[in-house]
Design a binder for these strands. Structure first.
Length: 578
RNA sequence: GCCCCCGUAGCUCAGCUGGACAGAGCGGCCGCCUUCUAAGCGGCGGGUCGCAGGUUCGAGUCCUGCCGGGGGCACCA
């Protein structure tokens, strides 16, 4: 069940093919009153075919077999083809879409293996505001890909290797159970700070830490066991934060830097075999063409430092090779901030030179802008500290709880808490997802938790209002949808507008996935909610006469379904009541 | 110096990959609860789409050059 746009475009295609095989109808929603879609293809075709646009448009009107789907097809003097959909066809299409468990969302024509690298915190420290965007955007993309029928492999490329782990292991030994307890409570930050303080204060600890790193790198079993202990406790903490946030990542999705450790020499050796390696200033580098530094000199991607150590470029190359090789990725997605654009361009370029990216496959850097405070500077606390993610979520839920308590004092305590979690977490996520990810985004509690405007609470409220209708009537919305109800009578403009909006779901989701831009789905859902409230204001449902009541109930059930499914694709839950 | 991202209403942002008069929310002003959740809805006012060229039947959208903001550019990730 395709979206409305695709359905109509397909029906229009033969008329365009007659003029020029494969010509694009350029079908768009129309702003003209009483017109649903406009096909602009005739204007584009005019020059190529050597005929006036109006002429072509007239011919399209004459030859298009839009039969039962359009009630009016007109060519404008300028060459636009204006289409007005038939109410009966619209209603029948809506009924069919309502009965579809996917509510019209098409599956991808080809199921791909998509590896998504996101979140990727450093296990030495606690997750902070800097991890919010990658975690939220990455998770939404995973849900969208999976829903479209792709095979999604989540990879949480955590920092679990490096010199700081020598220090942490030594401190874990030194602090014994106390340290383990701090870690199991999730106070990674406190543990790290204490370890750091002890490290700075004691040369002896510094020495032990250094030799511990050597032991770790060389695979000493006892050291590895201690490291594993630290990592497990840390991952458990991260997992609890993910759970709280409603993020899909699980411990088994962790593929940390340590995982690639053994592959790093292999990566360098292969680069050498392929003749790509150049030694420069003591470091072993690859110089991909097209990159220059400040002085205009070729810019290297350093894969082995002059001290013999490897760096993040080496690890990223190993990961790239692993994803397209072992995992058989068709697409490797990196949900990483925009500042790393150059780094990934170079890694991808070297990956291609090395032949690790098969023909037709592609790595994609899904970049995003910085999260800024109200002062338009990097998001920090008043004291200038980074904001812990767990505390951010706490505050969101507290604020939401206060709002819920004020607006809906009758909700039972238990339910109020569940609603507050959904609203608070939803607000944070939606605020992040609802603007073009490439832009920097301004974090603002009041705006994201507002019940007006393009926010999660507004959409959740629209959804809850609909559920309330069914509760009141003692009806089951899901059953209504599945029950292949009779097509609604689209008696009023508000009903008709709602029907059209509902049938745009597939188009919106496809555009969202096609550009890795969750904000497009947000915009659609916001628009749908607006169209619904207009309907809700002007069309009584339960008190409506029998001949329109069932149709309106179906519209309601369908809308609730799209809102909750749409929010679900973004990783946001829609409570039954609020 | 080079490269990347951004520049649309007072503020925060959309603008569906070039289409017919540029939209929303907030803020301001006015109106709407004996009626399915007013956490809502309607109306009014508000824009040289950073600037200048260019391509095109048509440009907020594509190209070039400037201006402004942010970021990146050899051994931290």
């Amino acid at each position: 069940m395709a979206g409305l746009l695709a359905l109509v475009a397909a029906r229009l295609q033969p008329a365009f093919d007659r003029l020029e095989p494969g010509a694009d109808p350029v079908l768009r929603p129309s702003g003209q009153p009483g017109v649903d879609f406009q096909a602009n293809g005739a204007l584009a075709l005019a020059k190529r075919v050597g005929r006036p646009p109006a002429d072509l448009a007239a011919e399209i009107v004459a030859t298009a077999s839009l039969g039962e789907i359009c009630t009016k097809v007109e060519a404008s003097p300028k060459g636009f083809v204006n289409l007005t959909l038939d109410d009966g066809w619209l209603a029948a299409t809506l009924a069919a879409t309502a009965a579809d468990p996917r509510l019209g969302r098409c599956l991808a024509e080809r199921s791909l293996t998509v590896v998504v690298d996101y979140s990727s915190p450093n296990l030495a420290k606690e997750m902070h505001a800097g991890h919010v965007r990658t975690t939220i955007i990455g998770d939404a993309l995973c849900r969208l890909y999976a829903d479209a029928g792709h095979r999604v492999i989540r990879e949480n490329h955590v920092g679990d290797w490096g010199t700081q782990f020598g220090m942490l292991i030594e401190y874990l030994l030194e602090s014994g159970d106390a340290g383990r307890e701090a870690l199991s409570l999730g106070d990674l930050e406190g543990f790290y700070r204490q370890a750091r303080a002890a490290f700075d204060a004691s040369e002896e600890l510094q020495d032990r830490s250094r030799s511990r790193v050597v032991l770790l790198q060389s695979g000493d079993p006892d050291t590895v066991a201690l490291w594993r202990q630290y990592v497990d406790l840390s991952v458990a903490h991260f997992t609890s934060v993910y759970h709280r946030l409603g993020v899909l990542l699980q411990p088994e999705d962790v593929v940390g830097e340590s995982f690639y450790n053994d592959l790093l020499p292999v990566v360098v050796a292969e680069l050498e075999d392929k003749g790509l390696l150049v030694e420069s200033e003591g470091a072993r580098c690859v110089f991909p063409p097209g990159f220059a530094n400040r002085e205009g000199q070729p810019l290297p991607l350093i894969v082995q430092k002059s001290d013999g150590g490897y760096n993040y470029a080496t690890t990223d190359l190993a990961a790239l090779r692993d994803r397209f090789g072992r995992l058989g990725a068709d697409v490797a997605v990196y949900v990483v901030g925009a500042p790393q654009a150059l780094h990934f361009q170079m890694v991808f370029a070297v990956g291609r030179l090395a032949g690790w990216i098969p023909e037709g496959k592609e790595p994609v850097h899904v970049m995003f802008g910085s999260m800024l405070g109200a002062d338009r500077k990097m998001f920090k606390t008043r004291a200038g500290d980074v904001v812990k993610l767990a505390e951010l979520v706490d505050e969101a839920v507290e604020r939401a709880a206060a709002a819920v308590a004020a607006k809906s004092p009758d909700l039972p305590d238990g339910e109020a808490q569940v609603v507050a979690e959904a609203v608070g977490v939803g607000a944070v996520k939606y605020a992040d997802l609802s603007t073009d990810r490439a832009r920097d985004y301004v974090f603002d509690w009041d705006r994201m938790l507002a019940f007006d405007g393009n926010t999660a609470p507004y959409l959740q409220y629209a959804h809850a209002r609909i559920r309330s209708i069914f509760r009141r009537a003692g009806l089951d919305a899901a059953g209504l949808l599945a029950g292949a109800a009779a097509p609604p009578v689209l008696a009023s403009p508000a009903e008709r507008d709602l029907a059209v909006a509902l049938l745009d779901f597939d188009t919106a989701v496809a555009a969202t996935i096609g550009t890795d831009s969750p904000h497009k789905l947000c915009s659609y859902l916001f628009d749908l909610a607006g169209v619904f409230t207009a309907f809700y204001e002007s069309c009584p449902v339960l008190r409506a006469p029998a001949e329109v009541r069932d149709g309106r109930l179906l519209l309601c059930a369908h809308t609730a379904g799209v809102l909750s499914a749409g929010l679900g694709l973004l990783g946001i839950t829609a409570p039954e009541r609020m």
